[in-house]
Design a protein around this nucleic acid. Structure first.
Lengths: 184, 184
DNA sequence: ACCTGAACACCGTTCAAGT
DNA sequence: ACCTGAACACCGTTCAAGT
């Protein structure tokens, strides 16, 4: 019997259950059940559970648009801000991005290239560009995690707008630091 | 039969297996086996697996010393740098800190109070202090994650010394930004 | 209060077999 | 190439029972 399953369908179903129930709630058997298929049918489209989770995470990043601003500093900021917003829309997944230290799939590489292009036009190259990109990604994903409900004991929860403003401020500090002393 | 088990012993055994085999490798049954005890004996000292993981993470932070510098800016930096180093020494755990967005146990609260004290002496109070503390923690844990082997595709791995220098630079950018415009 | 034995309801993954 | 049925070796957790 052939169910006509696609890898995309598997990833999409996994993303749905992951967004709803978190990573802990994701099981291959649950995904298979949602697709009306035997548990091990998943293995025809994906190597193992880890690969499926990676595919889901990278797929989410496809929603981050290419920057349109001509000014490289604004373009760089828009990449980070759009990533922040996309991650917030999938709050249940943010922790997993952090645990897996981001994604290294094709979508993540696409965004990495866009960031490098902005940094290059800002006069930042070589190891400084690599370090700067790292800092920006860490900061963006980390802040998205904060925004999804991380409040310390006895501390009143901040509004999403407030956290977003703090994120924007920190982003400016970082970009300023990264580009300080560069030629352009 | 009484095995004379202590909660501390359970947490210590869990920390050992977690450090060696990562979070995925941690199972209550493995911890119990290492202690020579029945699997469900763990439940006499810990509510469930999540509570055990939280206890392990918080326990690691006990190794971060109280800052000794009198200058609050230097004291703040030393807290973050010591945290970074402690996390690096337990590389297998860093991802879990990120996924759980840090720790909220007594040790984490101790460090949070020390950070607030430094920020207060730097003239940073209220929501700016809360936002600044958040940014510093996110950045520190995130960078520790980077240092434990996060290198992008086709990018040559950086030396630990190099990553640490980048971390220190980013830390300075953040602290400068947080304290900019404050009264002291 | 602390621990065991036994069981329940799950997992991810493999393997042979079918089409 | 894609999918199923059945099985293997695990899980976390609960419950009654023992001391």
């Amino acid at each position: 019997m052939r169910a006509g399953l696609t890898r995309d369908q598997v990833v999409a179903a996994a993303q749905r259950t992951m967004t709803e129930r978190g990573v802990a709630g994701l099981s291959l058997r649950a995904v298979a059940a949602e697709l009306g298929v035997a548990p091990n049918a998943i293995y025809s489209h994906v190597a193992d559970k880890d690969a499926l989770v990676d595919a889901v995470l990278d797929d989410v990043l496809a929603a981050v648009p290419e920057p349109t601003a001509r000014d490289p500093r604004r373009a760089l900021k828009s990449i980070m801000i759009d990533t922040y917003d996309v991650l917030l829309a999938r709050a249940g997944l943010v922790g997993t991005y952090l645990a897996r230290q981001g994604s290294r799939g094709p979508e993540a590489q696409r965004l990495g290239r866009a960031m490098d292009d902005c940094l290059l036009r800002l006069g930042v190259t070589g190891s400084r560009a690599a370090g700067g990109r790292r800092a920006l990604i860490v900061f963006t994903i980390g802040y998205a995690a904060f925004a999804t409900g991380w409040t310390a004991e006895g501390e009143q929860p901040l509004s999403p707008e407030r956290v977003r403003r703090d994120f924007l401020a920190g982003l400016d500090w970082l970009i300023t630091g990264i580009t300080a002393g560069s030629s352009v």
